[in-house]
Design a protein around this nucleic acid. Structure first.
Lengths: 69, 69
DNA sequence: ATTAAATGTAAAATTAACTTTACGTAAAGG
DNA sequence: CCTTTACGTAAAGTTAATTTTACATTTAAT
């Protein structure tokens, strides 16, 4: 499973620390999520999607994206 | 956090066992989720939404629903 | 060169998700 | 009555998420 956390964080101009604070998790959690070391709980996934003002499915990519059509 | 798993499972006419099998989790996991004993991982939440052919946000209710106004 | 901010790694500890096993109850059908 | 099916509880065990602490690296500014 992939995610767009790092990209979105950059777009929103947030540091890992700032994002961690907003989500009320540790910075390690942000790093691990960005690095794909593990998958978040649904609550954390939801909170992340709220910070980035989108849906969970917009942050987390479950399926292989169709590359060509 | 609330969820509509039990309702959706009934609508789709699935037993806890059948749903568990489809999701590749134990029946205990289904019971615990339906009873709200804990929250699923995002992967499990995603799989559940797929079984019920909807979005994660349609199965899991994160915010308090607006009751009036 | 030094400081500070941001990012990263590593590892041990804690918490939460999930499994496994065993047992209890209620409804439906033989 | 007896069996089967579906749902439920309880508790112990395993795995994965998350925290905490400590330290290393890079980049930008002084």
């Amino acid at each position: 499973m992939q995610n767009r956390i790092k990209d979105l964080r950059t777009i929103y101009d947030l540091t890992q620390d700032e994002l961690a604070e907003r989500l009320e998790v540790s910075r390690q959690t942000i790093i691990s999520l960005e690095k794909g070391r593990y998958n978040p709980s649904i609550m954390l996934a939801y909170k992340i999607s709220k910070v980035f003002m989108c849906r969970i499915e917009d942050v987390f990519i479950f399926e292989e994206e169709e590359k060509n059509g």
